[in-house]
């Protein structure tokens, strides 16, 4: 985990990826190259295969065709370098366990068979909870958490892994403005450490503000690249279909985005992305 990749080997490389659920293709011939160290948003309408793409990259699904490389190798050989923040609804939050316990699960991979987490793992989990501002809730039963807190617990669990690539499935879904801020700050810290983040994202308005790369997906790959180059009305229309409302919304995004971004950006400390959209 010490070696850095300075854009030589892409963090994630997907070639000709096709995934189908009962003949219905969820992903069709998708190519994708994600350079190391970017924050990438994956956007697309419902059923576009965004979650499927993440799961296929993680090896949770068996693709019909195509291959996935993580830092140039099959994902099975890079388990320690890749982490996952699933959708909150993917687990039963009534499971009898505590916040700290869930976060410590992030260490199970490196511990290997049988060995239990000890004090070192505990400390790391607490540090990760600190990062997401949840330390004081470490003893809490997980069923008592709010949606935003659940999300932050999952983020902390991924942080504990200290991976190089983080795949996040709708990290902003159902969280309040304050939590959203906290998560954005966290994403920027990750990027500052040279980590790569791929996140499924639904709020088109905030794409230029939060991310520097974007992938537009609707079963097929519509476009992928720096936000300034590919996040435009034409690509959005291709992604979301010719629907009037969407097209109008996309235009609104392009016009509004720089205006919305500027005041926030001065606070979050100077990013250099998103301005080219206008």
């Amino acid at each position: 985990m010490t070696d850095r990749h300075n854009g030589k080997v892409p963090a994630v490389e997907v070639q000709d990826l096709t995934v189908a659920y009962r003949e219905q293709p969820a992903l069709w011939d998708v190519d994708l190259t994600v350079p190391s160290g970017v924050l990438l948003a994956i956007v697309g309408p419902n059923g576009a295969g965004k979650t499927t793409l993440l799961k296929a990259i993680l090896g949770l699904l068996r693709p019909v065709a195509g291959q996935v490389l993580v830092f140039g190798q099959p994902v099975e050989q890079q388990r320690r370098r890749i982490s996952y923040v699933p959708q909150r609804g993917s687990v039963d939050w009534d499971f009898p366990t505590s916040v700290l316990d869930v976060v410590m699960m992030g260490t199970y991979g490196e511990l290997g068979w049988i060995r239990r987490p000890g004090r070192r793992e505990r400390e790391r989990a607490l540090a990760a909870l600190d990062q997401v501002g949840m330390r004081e809730l470490s003893d809490r039963q997980i069923s008592q958490l709010s949606g935003g807190q659940q999300q932050r617990v999952f983020l902390a669990r991924a942080l504990v892994q200290d991976a190089d690539i983080y795949l996040m499935d709708e990290p902003f879904q159902g969280v309040d403005a304050l939590t959203e801020r906290a998560i954005v700050t966290l994403l920027q810290q990750l990027r500052a450490q040279g980590k790569t983040v791929m996140a499924v994202h639904h709020d088109l308005q905030t794409v230029p503000e939060y991310f520097d790369w974007v992938m537009l997906l609707n079963v097929r790959r519509i476009a992928c690249g720096p936000v300034t180059e590919v996040f435009n009305e034409q690509n959005l229309r291709l992604t979301y279909g010719g629907r009037f409302a969407m097209a109008a919304f996309a235009r609104e995004v392009e016009e509004a985005a720089p205006a919305i971004v500027t005041p926030d950006r001065s606070r979050s400390g100077g990013d250099d992305h998103g301005t080219g959209a206008a």
Binding site: L60, R79, Y108
Partner: peptide, 8 residues
């Protein structure tokens, strides 16, 4: 799913 991502 997370277990599998960790390599279990």
């Amino acid at each position: 799913d997370f277990a599998r991502v960790l390599g279990l």
